[in-house]
Nucleic acid binder design. Structure first.
Length: 325
DNA sequence: TTTGTGCCTTAGCT
DNA sequence: AAGCTAAGGCACA
């Protein structure tokens, strides 16, 4: 019998692995054939099978909004929303410009999706992302969560299910064989709240290896904790106003604001231009020219249609996988 | 209005 | 082996 902590969704046109590792979210770990991470204080294990995506709840933090960690509809809600399972991907792809670079990107990234993350976590993650490589960002975020995040206990039924089978020393290698039912890395930690980070000193934050970004994170935490910046309110604002509000924060320029708008607020007209996308745009659309910053930004905002942000993710992923081959 | 430079840290080079 | 450079930017001059 299936444990009550597991639900499954139809998984058509969805490449879970590509999506979770495409540089939009930084807290998902591959454990055997599954992916483990936190959504709203809930510790999930996600798996893709040919027919479906399954979500298994491993535990929930005491402050998470779920009184009963086995309550299936809650699980469904969190996973479903995070993964944006209602999105009609073919309909979005159909709005992309019909040119060679986009055709190549679509072909190379079939099933790539945009997630819907929590604004606070997303904002902090991308403030930390400046002049950092993905592995380093992952490292910083992991340290932040371990030091200042709420530990997430393993749900009782999961513990019962796995306790006798848990290896003494868990094999955490990325491709470790997952003899079912394999238990991943414990304990897990919720993302620290703004109030918790606001109570940190700059020096404490610097122990998470974020360097000059520490004062930015601290100031952002204080702004959010005090209510001076209301992240929920940004949902109701048009993209350019929400963008301006985010850019009031030190350490948040246009690129980081666009990432947060796209990955947390679903503002699909936001088009973050980082060095990879700049490279892609230059190589693919302006060969042998050196477009100015302004020209590039204008092109980015006019050429890609109503789902420009989605198109950006495809270009980004395309040049990354192309390079790694 | 544009352009250059310092900033923390570290992976991946030479 | 140690030193260098670039890495999914931003703020300030």
């Amino acid at each position: 019998m299936k444990p009550a902590t597991q639900v499954s969704f139809p998984g058509r046109d969805y490449d879970l692995a590509a999506t979770l590792s495409s540089g939009q979210a930084f807290r998902w770990r591959q454990v055997g054939d599954a992916w483990e991470g936190i959504i709203s204080g809930h510790h999930f294990r996600l798996r893709q099978t040919p027919a479906a995506i399954t979500a298994e709840l491993l535990g929930a933090s005491s402050t998470a909004s779920t009184p009963d960690p086995t309550h299936a509809s809650r699980i469904t809600h969190h996973a479903h929303h995070f993964l944006q399972l209602d999105t009609d991907l073919p309909a979005i792809l159909a709005t992309f410009p019909d040119d060679e670079p986009m055709r190549a990107s679509i072909a190379a990234c079939r099933g790539l999706r945009l997630l819907r993350q929590e604004p606070w976590e997303c904002l902090v993650s991308f403030i930390c992302s400046s002049t950092k490589q993905i592995v380093q960002i992952q490292q910083i975020i992991a340290l932040l969560c371990e030091r200042f995040g709420e530990p997430i206990p393993v749900a009782a039924n999961v513990r019962r299910l796995h306790s006798s089978l848990r290896p003494e020393t868990p094999d955490l290698r990325p491709n470790a064989k997952s003899e079912p039912p394999y238990v991943g890395c414990y304990p897990a930690f919720a993302f620290p709240t703004a109030a918790r980070l606001a109570a940190c000193s700059e020096a404490e934050l610097r122990t998470c290896k974020m360097g000059f970004r520490a004062p930015y994170i601290l100031a952002a935490a204080k702004a959010v904790a005090s209510g001076e910046l209301n992240l929920s309110r940004l949902h109701t604002l048009p993209t350019f106003e929400a963008r301006a509000a985010l850019m009031c924060l030190h350490g948040v320029g246009g690129k980081i604001a666009d990432c947060v708008l796209l990955f947390a607020y679903g503002k699909q007209d936001a088009f973050p231009v980082d060095v990879w996308v700049r490279r892609a745009l230059t190589e693919l659309y302006f060969p042998r020219r050196r477009p100015s910053e302004k020209r590039l930004a204008h092109f980015a905002n006019t050429h890609f249609g109503p789902n420009a942000g989605y198109a950006q993710q495809y270009l980004f992923h395309y040049v990354r996988v192309k390079k790694s081959v």
